[in-house]
Design a protein around this nucleic acid. Structure first.
Length: 883
RNA sequence: GGGCGUUUAGCUCAAUUGGUAGAGCGUCUCCCUUACAAGGAGAGGGUUUGGGGUUCGAGUCCCUAAACGCCCACCA
């Protein structure tokens, strides 16, 4: 790393350059690389693989930051930490991108053929693979890229085939004809959870179906008149007296004249619409079930592209028409025939393809499914036994209710980009063989379909560790993984599947903890999306504010259990300002400790302030450890911010200026400063890795031969020898005194430059404390002299303030506004009196005395004594002011 | 329809087993004091969404109402 002297450090932190320099340092020294042969206990996180087509968004930035914090924390805490990176081949998304490019050249994938198309897609994927993970690097991600994986690489493909074959042999994978969610744009089946429902305003059309051979008709209500050509029956509720007589009769369909029966089925809701439903088994899931019960024929009238089929069931005028045009045309035709009775406005939920937002067409087709129930069983038990914990816990319920009502998973996709299903059909006989390899390529042809992307993602925690080779070092060392970090939006898509697959194939939980964080939203709480144009690009934020600033801000916003995290560009100023504060405080410290010796802190030569800050640091160490262990990231950030800014910067550094000027304690103060910064930078490192690494390496002596980088330095743990309860309490007097005097100066409008003289009227006990802290008071409150004899200023005009149980008197030569001062003191007194009254009423309450903890009672008594003493001081002041 | 979450200062959010509310930003004063104006010092600002209950004591626990948000289910 470049050497730089403290004097050369600019007054503003140059995040951009320093972050690049530091990341390079980590990479060149291979500090992210995990060692499968080490003796340390493992800590493993596998990245939720971002889409290979993707670019970094704020969700990744948050997710990545949290994973990096954990990885760095455990790495520093003595674990063999592995954060395993990789990308997802993202079946539909990637294929869509490549097809779009082809379309620009007026080509389709069919023009190229499967082999050529895949070649092109691989080329594209390989070109883009690096993009997103390189963007993760800007975040400071300490993942081990020597172990980087891709869900479609050879190893993952082997794992997928192994899993598919085993599940098939167990009877847990089957092929069958069912109604699936069909996306006419993607031209593929999709699973239930890839279908999102949106409420839309539509119409409910009432169509009259005349009875056969007699007068009268039955009126059905439908939202989809274009499917009527596939009707196989009209259904009514068996208990519906309106239609009792009609059950078993036939109707003649309008437009086509085909005859269909009227049947009775419980499924029909008497109160909805007209109480009569047309049944279209090939194009509606409920109708399909009804059809099965009544042995109805499935009639396809819409094809894979969402166009009307050109068959005998569909009127010629509609052949090849898009489903929406066909709907319009059908209505027109019905109107002419006067069989359309009414059109009612109707709000309903329409299923859309999660990927392309096209309206789903429920369609009967033959697909591959995973039988989920037996697999889910183990995954449910695991949670109930506590083998896997969700954090926050409430997501457990979510997960369980989904698992308990799980339905079979449609895993085949009519795409080319993905894991091709390892099923082979005999060219002549059609006999099917499911196997990892084609038994004879001359005789067998592989199934054309590929697997749902989430099928391979579901194996990610072990496929990336070289499963099914369970004897390899990585799998042995790092599986099961430790923590999974992700957003709640993919619990079902991904987490649930990893758990089921993990148990089925490795016999154990793929991870012990699932940490669920919130989702990033814009200032208004809206989801960020490109189409809304409300996205904030993390890379731009890093360029503008710095990576550590981004990380710190995101972390601080991610308080425990938060499910929305609202951000705006300006919010990152918070992190930037903090980074800058760290930078400048460190500059100050480094300048002052450049000649520090390499000797331990002399505990016999510590000042009250030293002991206070060491005590505070020790408390902070405990809090940070506790909060990081329990995934309280936002809280950790706040604790560190508060400690660094309010304790170190606002007080200790100012006090250290006094101490550094005192020969007797100067060197020991430097040692304290060194220890303080060394330790605090370690605490901050997981959240703000770059700036802390940079500064830490500039601290004299801390970078020794056994550890030349903060990233692998040990994380602080609390140590009793730094507990100084008494001195910490005494320091409160310093703070109170200085604050009171500052307050006084401000309210009396005393020139900031002017030094004042003060007289302290204290009891013996407190006088000792005040004498010990005189130098701090003088410096920080700009005091010239301190006297302890109030007699000397008896006749002077004075203004006073109460501090602890003492009185600080400031003689004034110039006039002050006694009215203002009086009201200020009265206000203070009132506040104290109110507090005392409230506390006293507690003590007077028998039940409180019975029920409250003794400690609390004692605390209350002590507090009352304190208040009384202060009240007396203030009352006296008020009397003086009145005179 | 079922489930979950949220509601605290003008805004964004804290408050770890119930002990009497804090921070950042914004506002107002003052200050370029030799680490930092991306800074320092100080001030103002809250019947903790409404109602009821348990308790000596409730932002915190229970009931209830409302508003907002999310997830699941998918009635033509």
């Amino acid at each position: 790393m470049e050497t730089q002297t403290v004097e050369q450090m600019p007054t503003q932190y140059d995040a951009l350059n320093i972050e690049k320099e530091i990341y390079k340092f980590w990479e060149e020294n291979e500090l992210f690389k995990a060692n499968a042969n080490s003796d340390k206990p493992p800590y493993t996180i596998v990245i939720p693989p971002p889409n290979v087509t993707g670019v970094l968004h704020m969700g990744h930035a948050l997710d990545g930051t949290l994973q990096d914090i954990l990885t760095r924390y455990y790495r520093m805490s003595g674990y063999e930490a592995l954060w395993l990176p990789g990308t997802d081949h993202a079946g539909i998304a990637t294929q869509n991108v490549v097809e779009k490019k082809l379309r620009e050249e007026n080509k389709t994938r069919f023009d190229l053929g499967r082999e050529e198309f895949l070649k092109l897609t691989w080329q594209w994927a390989n070109e883009h693979k690096g993009t997103i993970l390189n963007q993760f690097k800007r975040l400071g991600a300490s993942f081990d890229r020597t172990r980087e994986r891709f869900t479609l690489d050879k190893g993952c493909n082997d794992a997928v085939k192994e899993v598919f074959v085993r599940l098939y042999e167990k009877g847990l994978i089957y092929k069958g004809a069912y109604i699936v969610n069909w996306c006419p744009r993607c031209c593929s089946a999709i699973s239930d959870i890839e279908t999102v429902y949106e409420t839309e305003m539509g119409s409910l059309w009432e169509i009259s179906y005349p009875l056969k051979n007699e007068a009268g008709a039955i009126v059905v209500a439908t939202t989809r008149p274009e499917t009527m050509f596939g009707d196989a029956a009209i259904a009514v509720n068996p208990n519906d007296y309106k239609y009792k007589e009609l059950i078993g009769k036939k109707v003649v369909m309008p437009l086509t004249g085909r005859e269909i029966p009227i049947i009775a089925d419980e499924y029909v809701d008497k109160s909805f619409g007209t109480g009569a439903v047309k049944i279209t088994p090939a194009h509606d899931p409920n109708d399909y079930e009804v059809g099965k019960r009544h042995n109805l024929k499935s009639i396809w009238v819409i094809d894979e592209n969402g166009k009307m089929k050109a068959n005998g069931y569909v009127p010629k005028e509609l052949h090849g028409l898009d489903r929406y045009q066909a709907r319009k045309k059908t209505i027109e035709m019905l109107k002419i025939q006067e069989t359309l009775l009414r059109t009612l406005p109707h709000e309903h939920n329409v299923g859309k393809c999660q990927r392309c937002n096209t309206t789903i067409e429920p369609m009967l087709s033959e697909q591959w499914f995973v039988k989920m129930e037996p697999l889910a069983k183990k995954a449910i038990e695991a949670i109930n036994k506590g083998e896997i914990k969700f954090i926050p816990e409430r997501y457990t319920k979510n997960y369980l209710s989904w698992m308990e009502n799980i339905r079979d998973w449609c895993i085949s996709r009519q795409l080319w980009w993905g894991h091709q299903i390892p099923a082979y059909y005999h060219i002549e006989t059609g006999e099917m063989v499911v196997a990892k390899e084609n038994p004879n390529p001359k005789l067998y042809k592989q199934d054309e379909d590929v697997l749902d992307t989430w099928f391979s993602s579901g194996l990610w925690p072990f496929s990336t560790l070289n499963w099914p080779d369970i004897d390899n070092a990585d799998f042995k060392k790092f599986y099961p993984t430790t923590t999974l970090v992700t957003g709640f939006d993919i619990i079902f898509f991904w987490v649930a599947r990893m758990i089921t697959m993990g148990y089925e194939f490795t016999g154990e939980a793929p991870f012990s903890t699932v940490y669920i964080h919130g989702l990033i939203r814009d200032e208004q709480g809206q989801k960020m999306s490109k189409s809304k144009g409300n996205t904030i690009d993390p890379v731009q934020i890093i360029d503008k504010y710095g990576s550590d600033a981004l990380r710190f801000t995101l972390t601080s916003l991610n308080t425990f259990g938060a499910q929305d995290i609202k951000i705006s560009d300006e919010r990152f100023e918070y992190g930037r300002n903090f980074a800058n504060k760290i930078w400048n405080a460190s500059r100050f410290t480094l300048m002052n400790i450049c000649d520090v010796d390499d000797i331990q802190i002399d505990f016999n030569n510590l000042t009250i302030a030293d002991k206070w800050i060491l005590n505070k640091l020790n408390e902070t160490i405990k809090l940070v450890n506790d909060n990081l262990k329990t995934f309280r990231f936002g809280e950790t950030a706040h604790i560190l911010y508060e400690f660094f800014w309010n304790n170190i910067c606002d007080w200790y550094l100012e006090i250290s200026k006094v101490q550094l000027g005192d020969e007797k304690i100067s060197m020991n103060t430097k040692r304290v400063l060194k220890y303080l910064f060394d330790t605090t930078l370690r605490l901050l490192h997981p959240i703000m890795p770059h700036i802390t690494e940079k500064i830490w390496q500039l601290i004299p002596y801390v970078k020794n031969s056994s550890c030349n980088a903060l990233i692998i330095a040990s994380f602080p743990i609390p140590d009793e020898k730094y507990n100084f309860a008494l001195e910490s309490k005494q320091m409160e007097v310093v703070f109170e005194t200085i604050k009171s005097l500052r307050n006084l100066r401000q309210s009396l409008n005393i020139n900031t430059g002017a030094l004042i003289d003060i007289v302290i009227d204290a009891n013996k006990e407190e006088e000792i404390i005040f004498k010990a802290i005189e130098s701090y008071i003088k410096r920080l409150a700009k005091v010239n002299s301190i006297l302890y004899n109030s007699q000397e200023i008896k006749d002077k005009k004075c203004v006073n303030c109460a501090v602890s149980n003492s009185k600080i008197i400031v003689p004034l030569d110039n006039l002050i506004n006694f009215e203002d001062e009086l009201s200020r003191q009265n206000k203070k007194l009132l506040k104290l009196t109110n507090e005392r009254n409230s506390l006293e009423s507690r003590l007077n309450n028998e039940k409180f005395m019975q029920n409250a903890k003794e400690e609390l009672i004692n605390q209350t008594k002590t507090r009352i004594d304190e208040i009384i003493a202060r009240e007396n001081v203030i009352k006296e002041l008020i009397e003086n002011l009145k005179q």
